[in-house]
Simulated assay, not measured.
Amino acid sequence: MELLRDLTLILLATTVVGHYCTRIGIPAVIGQLLVGVIVGPAMLGWLSLTHSLESFAEIGVIILMFIAGLESDLQLLKRYLKPSVLVALLGVLIPVAGVYLVGMVYQLNTVESLFISVIFAATSVSISVEVLKEMNALNSREGTTILGAAVVDDVLAVIILSVLISTTGTAVGTTAASSNLLLTTLEQLVYFAAIYFVVRWLAPYMVQIGQRLMIPMGSTLMAIILCFGMAYVAELVGLSDVVGAFFAGIAISQTSAKETVDHHIEPVGYALFIPVFFVSIGLNMSFTGLGKQLGFIAVLTVVAVLSKQLGAGAGAKLAGFTGASSLAVGAGMVSRGEMALIIAQIGYQAKLMSASRYSAIVAAIILATLLAPFLLRWTMDRVRKTAE
């Protein structure tokens, strides 16, 4: 019964706040994030992130990235592959260096500083996707590059995290971890190779089966099965489930059922699961014990935002983007969201950071995530004005 109460409160609050945010020209996703902060442990304490809400949020981000893949132009993604790789590489290296220096300045040990830098190397593109969709810019040059770079960024973050964990173990543990790292890398390569098979044969075959089923929305059901299946396998090989969901959307977008599936899946996602996901990020926020670390949080947030903005933006500039477009691409990579929170949780459980630092890092992640939609909206508006 508590789940029904929580869902009612979340949907009511996000509906009202989203309406007024849109009315005054603020991305609705900002309102949803702030709802989580206000009604969660940070302020009113009406909601906490229960296991049930976490499950709804997980489905929400999977559906969101599936829709992003569904509405993406595969030819544009291929065309902007090189810029995406450059954006991802510099968008990882510069934040790693910048955040590591922050750790050293605040006298964290080497392992903790390295781990924090890995946390802020990650990008959560789901929030950027929502802003780009609101602005009808998902298939723009900037939007396509952001989507492509986010996938590469995710793979790089997983590899760096695996290397870090393997190098902080004992001699025996390091050997085992190195073997696991090699195996994981091979599994991920096989996974990406298998995506071609899914796009070329499996997705069209599943859609054909769905169209022949004597049940309502057969094609949509088969598309959801493919989405959840690819998300699950992505997690098995050490990738984020959103990577699998995104490529499942790409696969379905190449079939005749694209419009039908898109028409059916959006109401399900946006009416229930996606708002819960955005609220869940705000629910992670807590002000307990943060008073003495406000300086650390402020510096970490500023460096996290600027290093990603400048690093990813520099990658776009090297790829031939204009100054305004480079800023927009950088802004689209600033959001850390669930990817950074997941990596932080892994490190906390592995005792790679203290409890007090963990709370401060979560606060910095959420602050950077809250700033990201404003930056992206502002920079994309500049791109449009420059083009006029």
Rank of each mutant, 00 (worst) to 15 (best):
Q254G: 12
F246L: 07
S55W: 11
A176F: 07
A171G: 13
S356I: 04
E130Q: 15
I195M: 15
M43W: 12
T260D: 12
L213R: 06
P204R: 03
L181S: 01
L226F: 14
V87F: 02
L318K: 08
M135W: 03
A88R: 04
G36N: 00
A234R: 05
L341W: 00
T301V: 06
Y106Q: 07
A355L: 03
Y80Q: 00
L64T: 10
L376M: 08
L12Q: 00
F278K: 04
F197L: 15
V152L: 10
A193I: 15
H51W: 11
Q293E: 14
V242L: 13
G289W: 13
G295D: 07
T255H: 05
S117W: 02
S48A: 12
L182A: 11
R384P: 06
G311D: 09
V243W: 04
I146L: 06
D154H: 02
G282Q: 01
S84E: 03
L90N: 07
R141C: 00
N109W: 11
L290F: 06
G238Y: 07
V198G: 07
V85P: 12
S286M: 12
A97L: 15
I297W: 09
V242N: 08
L181G: 01
G244H: 11
G238N: 06
F321M: 13
L186Y: 10
W378E: 13
M353W: 05
I59P: 02
L93E: 07
A331V: 09
R357Y: 09
E187S: 11
K292V: 03
A304K: 03
S219M: 07
L341T: 06
M333L: 09
N180F: 12
I94R: 01
W378K: 14
A355H: 07
D73C: 10
L183C: 09
L138H: 03
A177H: 11
L89N: 08
I342D: 00
V199C: 04
V152K: 09
V334R: 08
T255P: 06
M222H: 03
T255D: 01
L108C: 10
D153I: 08
A312D: 04
G315K: 09
A248W: 10
L202C: 08
D241C: 02
V131M: 00
V129T: 08
I224G: 10
S117G: 12
G323S: 13
I165F: 15
G36F: 03
R382M: 12
S256I: 15
L181K: 00
K292G: 02
D73E: 15
L53E: 08
H263K: 12
T386Q: 14
F321C: 11
M230R: 03
Q293H: 15
I24F: 14
L9C: 01
V118F: 00
G295E: 04
S126C: 05
M135Q: 11
T145C: 04
L183I: 11
V276R: 02
G210E: 13
P27S: 12
G25N: 06
T145S: 12
V39M: 11
L306V: 15
L306N: 07
V92N: 01
A88E: 05
S219H: 02
D73P: 06
A364I: 07
L239M: 13
V151D: 03
A350R: 15
A387Q: 14
E112D: 14
V279N: 05
V158S: 08
